Amino acid sequence: MRTARARHYLMCRPTHFDVVYSINPWMDPTKPVDTPLAIAQWERLREVYLNLGHTVDTIDPVPGLPDMVFAANGATVIAGRALVARFRDAERRAEGPAYHDWLRDNGFPELRTAAFTNEGEGDYLPVGDWLLAGTGFRSDPRSHDEAQEFFGRPVIGLQLVDPDYYHLDTALTALDENTVAYHPGAFSPGSRAVLERLFPDAVRASAADAAAFGLNATSDGHNVVLPQNATGLADQLRDRGFNPIGVDLSELLKAGGSVKCCTLELRRAH
């Protein structure tokens, strides 16, 4: 039996969403973007969370920051402590202070901005007592030591090697305290060996489901919200006792983001 646990999420409405620059392989500024459709898809995701019993706070979108909808990149929050992102790309750097100020004003006094490039929960995913940490395209490997010192939990560094999966949360998702799903092809041989050692019973996603951004998902321990086109992954999750819930975030995928990218988990101190 899988047990759901209510979560506390932070999201940012894609009021200013657009693709006007390219900082990952999914972004093509020549392709038109339907911002009202992006907003409608985002509202549906928020509704799914509320219907599951989760708490959803929102941060005000800032004009000129079209990627601010991807709240997961804003920080990593564990046990009430928040390590705020330091973005690699100039186009996104102003998002860090916006998330810093929201966290400061909403009950997270133990926070600081990362000294090294660190793109929040895009590259940092708590699983049990570990903090899985991605590098290779965005977050600086030196940020792994910084996160370990700040959170006081062991950090497991994982090397990403496929530019289509430029953040850890595009290639791996935490399903519960002991279980992950991941796409082996996104990782270096050594990192694949680490994942096999730590999670021998992991769900391994196919290339097709990974390309549908199926691993950019959220889980409450039972319900897994994921892109609706990742049908093979949904079947695997169902076989493992999870309840997959497919959503359509196709408009946001034009910027290389989906369910998890839109969702920052606010883990309070226990």
Rank of each mutant, 00 (worst) to 15 (best):
M27Y: 15
V194Q: 11
I59R: 09
H270I: 02
D145G: 13
Q159I: 00
G241Y: 14
D129P: 13
V84T: 06
A193L: 11
D248R: 14
A75M: 13
T263V: 08
H100N: 12
A171E: 08
P184Q: 11
A147G: 08
G241C: 06
T170W: 03
A193I: 08
D129G: 05
N243K: 11
G120W: 03
R86P: 03
L45S: 01
P63C: 09
V56M: 12
Q236C: 00
R86Q: 14
D129S: 15
T117D: 12
S258M: 07
A269M: 12
V77A: 02
D176G: 10
D28H: 10
A186V: 02
V69G: 00
R92F: 07
A71E: 07
P32R: 02
G134Y: 06
L195H: 12
P25L: 15
V225N: 03
L83G: 06
F108D: 00
K254L: 06
R5A: 08
L65P: 05
R112E: 07
H16V: 00
A98G: 04
E47F: 06
A133H: 06
G232M: 03
T218I: 12
G107M: 06
T117Y: 04
A171Q: 11
L264I: 03
K260E: 04
T135I: 02
D89N: 13
H222S: 00
R153I: 04
Y165V: 00
V155P: 03
N51K: 12
E119D: 04
H222C: 02
A230D: 07
V259Q: 06
R104E: 13
F70P: 02
G257S: 13
L131F: 14
P63H: 09
E146K: 07
G232H: 10
E95W: 13
D235S: 15
L266P: 04
N216T: 07
D145E: 10
P163F: 02
R204A: 01
Y124V: 03
S188W: 00
A210S: 04
P14E: 04
A98E: 11
N229C: 10
S143W: 06
S219E: 04
L198E: 01
R7H: 10
